[in-house]
């Protein structure tokens, strides 16, 4: 039997909103460690990895490891029915082909349950090697979302360059070009407004803005985003989820032919 209870149910709603447009179907793996998911988008250009550690839930029981194949659009439909303040319980019995979502209002005066059919999904689990990155940028997630949105009105791709001057986001399109430079800024009153750049090597990589805008849907989950870049690796765009875990988006770069 598998059962988890999360008082802050809005968190699961935000997770689904962040990934439902990127991935169609995914296997959610439930183990003693926690609730996790790894899936690629249909073009195999981006990969999303989610981890919600068991300690982060108010209640977590997993008698044996199970993998639940779920259509994310359908799961998002169900989670949309939960109130923002609702307590969410997810439950699956061994050997059944469905998972139950229960929503309780904070005052316990409304209790709903939804049963979602599980699917058989043949998905490949990729090994993501530990890597040292040439540059790691931490910045306000809302600022990153704004930059990706603004640049996508000019061009289709973004060049992210990290130098000792800061991090530069550039694009070009039919109407012209755009460059946005963010400098390191640690002298802010609130740590969530800081921009911190750790650079070992200068790095410059090109990515499709369409995917960056999709990743930015995770902005409500975290006030800061971490962008890790290396010249020979996919970029990692990470949003930490409270004290529970993370959602990481990996995106393969575009390279000169």
């Amino acid at each position: 039997m598998f059962e988890l209870r999360l008082e802050q149910g809005s968190l699961l709603k935000k997770v689904m909103e962040a990934i439902k447009d990127l991935v169609n179907d995914a296997n959610f793996d439930c183990s003693a460690t926690g609730f996790s998911m790894q899936a690629m988008d249909s073009s195999h250009v981006a990969l999303v990895a989610l981890l919600l550690r068991s300690e982060g839930f108010e209640h977590y029981r997993c008698d044996r490891n199970i993998s639940m194949g779920i259509n994310l659009a359908n799961m998002a439909k169900i989670l949309k029915c939960a109130g923002n303040d609702d307590i969410v319980t997810v439950k699956a019995d061994d050997g059944t082909d469905s998972v139950t979502f229960m929503f309780e209002s904070p005052t316990q005066d409304k209790i709903s349950d939804f049963e979602l059919k599980l699917m058989d999904i043949d998905s490949e689990h990729l090994g993501i090697p530990e890597a040292e990155y040439d540059a790691i940028v931490r910045m306000p997630s809302a600022e990153f979302a704004r930059i990706c949105k603004d640049l996508s009105s000019i061009g289709d791709t973004v060049v992210i360059s990290v130098t000792k001057e800061g991090v530069k986001f550039s694009t070009r399109g039919d109407i012209g070009t755009a460059n946005i430079v963010c400098r390191q800024n640690t002298s802010v009153d609130k740590p969530e407004e800081a921009t911190i750049i750790e650079m070992k090597e200068m790095v410059s990589l090109t990515f499709a803005l369409r995917y960056m805008n999709s990743f930015a849907k995770a902005t409500p989950l975290a006030s800061q985003v971490t962008i890790s870049l290396s010249s020979d690796l996919p970029v990692v765009v990470e949003y930490k989820i409270a004290e529970m875990g993370y959602i990481r988006f990996y995106l393969a770069p575009k390279i000169e032919e």
Partner: peptide, 14 residues
């Protein structure tokens, strides 16, 4: 002209 790399060019199946 840019070539879009794939995730599978970097990460392998377990």
């Amino acid at each position: 002209p840019c070539l879009q790399k794939k995730i599978l060019d970097y990460f392998n199946g377990d």
